[in-house]
């Protein structure tokens, strides 16, 4: 575990091709980024069901809505900033309000995009997307989970936002791992603290857990792959069983899983929560992995935070 690395955007591309083989109703759209989002893998196998829409994201998501209205299952991809950001109104009014069956698979989320810098590092998408009625929001943490998610969401009748990453991250789960939409995965059962993570920060949290164990500090990790609907039960259970709750995400601390966890706990089991994430600032250029350190969302930052609190 954690040795082999794959970017979830790559897992997406491979899973999409497999799904396209099984299900003739799958249609894929991209906005001139098919090499980067990896939808080009599907395009090569099923050119008749692949539509390159050019650099026109607003058009792409509205077109996907029209395709879905006839019973097809469109997967539409671009970078997260151009999906949730640029095409927000199209996603809101043409997809979510009429509850059309469009799968928005947004790659290049967070500061881990790296060198492209702030304009391309989407840090607000979880907040934007989970605020939309009818939307399901999923942020898978590794290759295994992503492949499961891509097929699983084809069975949901309604819009889904999947948040994928550019950075190669460790494979966490083996092929036998079972997942369920809306159910967090608990890793470890320490009671000193719970680290709630999503996407690229899950493997960092696991690394932190393993390091801390050697020092006699026992924590657990909650992998929140489904941000909406949120797994209230597991969050409350961990708040009751552990001394501290820390959230960590490659996303703004405003509106992301930190906020989501606070909403759940403040209503049902008031608990002090520490939110680790991008602290109301834009990103910057650098290597993805360096930026995780710079913005304090890597395993070292998690270890330091836990030692400070315990």
């Amino acid at each position: 575990m954690l040795d082999k690395k794959v970017a979830t955007r790559k897992s997406y591309g491979l899973a999409l091709k497999e799904l396209g083989e099984k299900n003739q109703n799958i249609v894929v759209l991209d906005a001139d980024l098919s090499g980067a989002t990896n939808t080009n893998i599907f395009a090569k196998s099923y050119p008749d069901r692949f539509f390159n829409m050019g650099i026109a994201e607003q058009d792409m998501f509205s077109t996907a809505a029209g395709v879905a209205s006839l019973g097809k299952i469109p997967y539409a991809s671009t970078f997260a900033v151009f999906a949730a950001g640029r095409a927000y109104d199209q996603i809101r009014n043409s997809i979510c309000y009429p509850k059309l069956n469009v799968k928005i698979c947004a790659t290049h989320s967070g500061v881990t995009v790296g060198e492209d810098g702030a304009t391309h590092q989407m840090l607000e998408d979880i907040g934007l997307m989970r605020g939309l009625p009818n939307m399901t929001v999923i942020s898978p943490s590794d290759d295994t989970q992503t492949k499961w998610v891509i097929e699983e969401i084809s069975k949901i009748d309604g819009p889904v936002y999947v948040r994928l990453a550019r950075l190669e991250t460790p494979i966490i789960y083996d092929e036998n791992q079972k997942f369920e939409i809306g159910k967090a995965v608990q890793i470890g059962d320490g009671t000193d603290a719970t680290v709630i993570a999503t996407g690229v920060t899950v493997s960092e949290a696991i690394k932190a857990m393993e390091n801390l164990k050697e020092e006699g500090i026992n924590i657990r990790v909650l992998d929140i792959h489904t941000i909406k609907p949120i797994d209230r039960e597991k969050i409350i259970k961990s708040a009751k069983e552990t001394k501290r709750i820390i959230t960590v995400e490659d996303h703004s601390i405003i509106g992301g899983i930190g906020s989501t966890v606070c909403e759940v706990l403040s209503e049902e089991y008031p608990t002090k929560v520490t939110r680790m994430g991008i602290k109301d600032t834009f990103g910057r250029s650098g290597k993805g992995i360096e930026l995780m350190g710079y913005f304090g969302i890597d395993s070292n930052a998690i270890i330091n935070e836990i030692k400070k609190e315990i």
């Binding site: 792409m60 998501f61 509205s62 077109t63 029209g66 209205s69 006839l70």
Partner: peptide
């Protein structure tokens, strides 16, 4: 855009 999607489908 939506109409295009319908026509494509």
């Amino acid at each position: 855009s939506v109409s295009n999607g319908m026509a494509i489908a």
